[in-house]
Design a protein around this nucleic acid. Structure first.
Length: 672
RNA sequence: GCCGACGUGGCGCAAUUGGCAGCGCAACGCACUUGUAAUGCGUAGGUUAGGGGUUCGAGUCCCCUCGUCGGCUCCA
């Protein structure tokens, strides 16, 4: 970030008396108000609230300038850009109604209700208009209003009126007075004449002038439901990005381009891993031989880890009579996202969308003793979910998927330790793959929607507390997700980001006190009584497909050597060396290493290029001199190279490197 | 599911806005036998996603279906 804004080192805290404006305080702090960048607003110490220049404290206070390039400064910048966009839109498309226009990560949006959806050409025109507004240097001016006055002023803006209603409902009263608890309008005033140019209902704060938006770009249009509710009308949303300098904007756009190159959908085709044949239908991937190798490596790995952790392996069918899902309670909740029933000989069958009911039947197949708990049933289970057409996405949201699914049946007393064990297991798996950019989410019941959840208040409270404690103990970032629980219990999930910043749920650990009751699961306790176990659902990768997608993006296609479909490419300088390299390949194959010899008609330079583009970790290049001295040239994926390496040594080094499951691209540093 | 954009050989793209479907890569064949990111020449490959309509004539315009992309909503 390359602005001249004050950094924390140079931020100066200023004491101000009651009634002093923020603008005066900034001046006192030595901040140039009309400069192109720099401090844009102030933060009141103690309250932490951001304040704009029209603000003045009721009592003596301490304030400090907020740098334009700081997170708070960028939020103000972006929100101000949203205002400028709204002004441009209403200027170009009179009668367009306004929704809301907040700052978001990397940018901003504003929701509109235009007569016609915006076209890409409209976006260009809006961007141009915004440029004019910014250049004009309009001043943002704060104006407190009473609710009643705001309603009159915003008579035509039905969405804004709804916001005022919501606010007064929330506070329980109408603000009849101007001031505390009331509303504020932000007026855009002409730089010279001070005349009102445009106005919007808004809490602020804003930049001093539009001129202080040095770099912005409109990104895309999209529809969004008003107030995020599917039942509400859709508004047209325009997304933009804004930065404290042109360089920052340019860097951000470059970063987006780079991220797009990592997209697993693109790399999946380029590396010949998988495809989505139209003939199969949306969200149904097929894995090609190379993708099959990657998939099998991951499955083998996750199986072995479950063996190590004491899971019992089970296997259940893909299809069942649908009574099972009535027993489990899934059907009323998930009927619309399950494939429809197939009717045969007076019975209705369904593809399974989850494995738990079948595992419950295995549990129930005989009497259970407290001595065998926790009983951990594991399966790589294929499930089918009719995901809505608009949500299907590469490998990360599919309609047929493989879950590394397990259910731990335990006594209520064992549950906390079991959950902790499972969470550590999940995190350990991710770290094994070099993944560490994730956070936890705690999904709980929405008390206002009791029909979406079953079980007693006490059950929910206890279960939620257990999950909360385990999650907190992990030390990872924990984001609350109220209302996100399954109908049968709360959950912890591990969230990872894809190349372009979208988050995907990976692991999930769910506490379930409902299904054991519905399936009448029991165990005999030490005192001879019959007790109900608790079941803990858990998927570690989540789905194999999604994990593959995230892994590809994480490595930008350059998979760790132990996962690479082709681990070594043999490149002969001339055809003469093909048999020689085939012998090397045979030796590596004995060690479990996958080596291909490129015997095409291409020049060796072309073969290197091909192997490089396929992101093969190792190349063994051999010419006549190598063949006669039983050596190879040893080239790494990063382009580094060691010549004249004896074949014995090369074989040992590669086999050793792969066996160690190093999660980085091999370089000479790994072999010194 | 909703809103919008889009769909041309396996992949990436073109087709003067309604007038002969083309290029590069990949594939295949031939020649070359080469020392660290593209050797040359040639061959084959298309009912322009599928269906219907308008028109003398449709890749291009209209309708439907399927699929993809960007969001929203949803995600056991």
């Amino acid at each position: 970030m390359s602005t001249t804004a004050p950094r924390s080192a140079s931020v100066k805290t200023v004491k101000v008396a009651a009634g002093t404006t923020a603008a005066d305080a900034l001046g006192e702090a030595g901040v140039e108000l009309n400069g192109p960048a720099g401090a844009v607003v102030v933060r009141q110490l103690g309250s932490g609230a951001l304040r704009d220049l029209a603000w003045s404290p009721d009592e003596d206070a301490e304030v400090e300038p907020v740098a334009a390039s700081s997170p708070d400064g960028l939020a103000v910048l972006r929100h101000s850009a949203a205002h400028v966009m709204a002004q441009a839109v209403q200027d170009l498309f009179p009668g367009t109604l306004l929704g809301i226009g907040p700052p978001i990560e990397n940018g901003f949006y504003y929701d509109f209700a235009p007569a016609e959806p915006f076209t890409p050409d409209d976006l260009v025109a809006i961007e141009k208009k915004m440029g004019e507004i910014i250049k004009a240097g309009q001043r943002f001016s704060r104006r407190p209003v009473s609710d009643a006055d705001a309603r009159i002023e915003l008579d035509a803006e039905r969405f804004k009126l709804e916001l005022i209603d919501l606010k007064s409902q929330a506070t329980g009263e109408e603000a009849t007075e101007v001031g505390a608890g009331g509303l504020t309008m932000y007026d855009n005033l002409d730089a010279r004449s001070g005349e009102l140019v445009w106005t919007d209902l808004c809490r602020g704060p804003h930049l001093p002038t539009t001129r202080r938006i040095p770099a912005f770009k409109l990104m895309r249009t999209a529809a969004a439901y008003w107030r995020g509710n599917e039942k509400n009308p859709q508004l047209q949303r325009i997304y933009g990005t804004a930065w404290a300098s042109r360089d920052d904007l340019k860097a951000y756009l470059t970063q987006l381009e780079e991220a797009a190159k990592r997209d697993h959908r693109k790399l999946g085709a380029e590396l010949d891993l998988f495809s989505f044949p139209d003939e199969l239908g949306s969200g149904l991937p097929v894995f090609h031989p190379k993708g099959g190798i990657l998939r099998r490596a991951l499955e083998d790995y996750v199986r072995q880890r479950h063996l190590d952790e004491g899971f019992d392996f089970v296997s259940t069918p893909h299809i069942t009579k649908d009574g099972l899902f009535h027993t489990s309670g899934h059907l009323p909740y998930y009927a619309d996202t399950m494939f429809p029933p197939m009717e045969l000989e007076n019975a209705e069958y369904r593809l399974k969308a989850m494995n738990c009911p079948m595992h419950n039947l295995i549990y129930r197949s005989r009497g259970r003793s407290y001595r065998e708990l926790p009983l951990r049933l594991f399966e790589l289970g294929n499930v089918y979910r009719y995901e809505k057409s608009g949500v299907v996405h590469g490998l990360t949201r599919v309609r047929g998927l493989t879950m590394d699914d397990s259910h731990s049946y335990c006594t209520p007393e064992q549950a906390p330790a079991e959950i902790k064990h499972l969470l550590n297991f999940c995190l350990g798996l991710f770290r094994d793959f070099g993944l560490d950019d994730f956070y936890l989410e705690l999904s709980t019941r929405d008390d206002s929607k009791p029909d979406k959840f079953i079980g007693t208040d006490e059950q929910w409270t206890v279960a939620t507390q257990i999950l909360q404690d385990v999650a907190t103990e992990s030390g990872l970032d924990l984001v609350p997700d109220p209302g996100g629980a399954a109908y049968y219990g709360p959950k912890i999930s591990v969230q990872a980001k894809d190349a372009i910043g979208r988050t995907w749920q990976m692991s999930t650990i769910q506490y379930d006190f409902n299904q054991p009751a519905r399936f009448e699961l029991e165990y005999q306790a030490a005192d001879g009584s019959r007790q109900q176990p608790v079941m803990i659902h858990s998927a570690k990768f989540g789905s194999i497909e999604r994990f593959i997608g995230v892994l590809i993006e994480h490595y930008a296609g350059a998979l760790p050597a132990w996962l690479s479909p082709v681990q070594v490419t043999g490149i002969p300088v001339t055809d003469e060396q093909v048999p020689y390299l085939r012998d090397v390949a045979a030796r590596l194959r004995i060690q479990g290493i996958r080596m291909e010899v490129d015997d095409s008609d291409d020049r060796m330079q072309k073969k290197i290029r091909t192997a490089q583009k396929q992101k093969v970790p190792f190349m063994l290049i051999a010419g006549e001199a190598d063949a006669s001295s039983n050596a190879v040239s040893f080239r790494y994926r990063d382009g580094e190279q060691r010549n004249g390496i004896p074949v014995d040594q090369a074989v040992d080094e590669i086999a050793g490197f792969v066996a160690r499951r190093v999660n980085e691209s091999p370089t000479s540093a790994h072999f010194s």
